[in-house]
């Protein structure tokens, strides 16, 4: 079970969080033309890297904040955790 450092609450067990996928995906802006290809990439296509991955988690049983976690998908090592508005 992972041990995730919520930037708002501190170290908490994984069971308090829910996973939210790739944190680097950017939603296309509202009211802008988006090609079929770009929209499909945004909705469906995700990388599945072996190694470092910046991902979203929500501290659902805690502060309810969405946070960013840089984690190694192979070893589960967590390098850093960030608030929603922070970037690496």
């Amino acid at each position: 079970m992972l041990y995730i450092k919520c930037p708002h609450c501190g170290l908490r067990p994984q069971t308090e969080f829910s996973y939210g996928g790739d944190a680097t995906v950017k939603r296309p802006e509202l009211n802008k033309e988006v090609s079929d290809q770009d929209w499909d990439n945004f909705v469906y296509l995700r990388k599945s890297p072996r190694g470092k991955h910046l991902e979203l988690w929500q501290h659902i049983s805690g502060c309810r904040q969405w946070i960013k976690v840089e984690r190694d998908t192979l070893t589960h090592e967590i390098f850093t955790t960030l608030k929603a508005n922070e970037n690496i």
Partner: peptide
């Protein structure tokens, strides 16, 4: 109910802060 709340929080915190 729980999914909708997370969904709203997602957009407020990450997409349209």
């Amino acid at each position: 109910a729980a999914n909708v709340l997370s969904h709203l929080e997602y957009y407020l915190q990450l997409v349209w802060p």
